[in-house]
Measured scan of single mutants.
Amino acid sequence: ETQAGIKEEIRRQEFLLNSLHRDLQGGIKDLSKEERLWEVQRILTALKRKLR
């Protein structure tokens, strides 16, 4: 995994995270989306740690 590859994956995950946040802010309670949001946040945290 290169730095560029990790950064690209971070961009993808952040896009997905923002999309999930928008969907959930629409007021629709969706447990699967909430679980996915937490999963994406965990992935992002792990990726950012790899960059250090």
Rank of each mutant, 00 (worst) to 15 (best):
E1G: 08
E1H: 11
T2G: 06
T2E: 12
T2R: 08
A4G: 04
G5D: 14
G5T: 12
I6L: 12
I6G: 00
I6Y: 02
I6M: 03
I6R: 01
K7H: 13
K7I: 14
K7D: 02
K7Q: 12
K7N: 05
K7S: 05
E8A: 14
E8M: 07
E8F: 03
E8K: 09
E9H: 08
E9K: 05
E9R: 04
E9Y: 03
E9C: 08
E9A: 10
I10V: 02
I10A: 00
I10L: 02
I10K: 01
I10T: 00
R11M: 09
R11D: 03
R12P: 01
R12Q: 08
Q13S: 03
Q13F: 15
Q13L: 15
E14D: 01
E14M: 11
E14G: 02
E14W: 07
E14C: 12
E14L: 11
E14H: 07
F15T: 12
F15I: 15
L16C: 09
L17C: 04
N18S: 08
N18Q: 15
N18F: 11
N18Y: 13
N18K: 11
N18P: 00
N18E: 13
S19F: 07
S19M: 13
L20F: 02
L20H: 00
H21W: 14
H21R: 14
R22V: 08
R22H: 10
R22C: 12
D23K: 04
D23Q: 11
D23N: 03
D23S: 07
D23V: 05
D23W: 06
D23Y: 06
L24A: 04
L24G: 02
Q25V: 14
Q25K: 10
Q25R: 10
Q25A: 13
G26D: 12
G27R: 00
I28S: 10
I28E: 10
I28G: 09
K29E: 07
K29P: 09
K29D: 08
D30W: 02
D30A: 03
D30V: 03
L31Q: 13
L31S: 12
L31D: 11
S32D: 14
S32Q: 14
S32F: 11
S32A: 15
K33L: 14
K33G: 04
K33C: 03
K33H: 07
E34N: 07
E34C: 15
E34G: 04
E34Q: 13
E35M: 13
E35V: 09
E35D: 06
R36A: 13
R36E: 08
R36P: 01
R36N: 05
R36T: 06
R36C: 05
L37G: 01
L37I: 15
L37W: 05
W38H: 13
W38T: 13
W38S: 08
W38R: 15
W38E: 12
W38C: 14
E39Q: 08
E39P: 00
E39H: 05
E39W: 07
V40P: 00
V40N: 02
V40W: 02
V40T: 07
R42K: 08
I43P: 00
I43E: 07
I43H: 08
I43A: 06
L44A: 00
L44P: 00
L44T: 00
T45P: 00
A46Y: 08
A46E: 14
A46G: 06
A46I: 12
A46P: 00
L47R: 00
L47H: 00
L47A: 00
L47M: 09
K48L: 11
K48V: 05
R49P: 00
R49T: 09
R49V: 10
R49I: 14
K50D: 04
K50V: 08
K50C: 13
L51Y: 03
L51G: 00
L51W: 04
R52I: 15
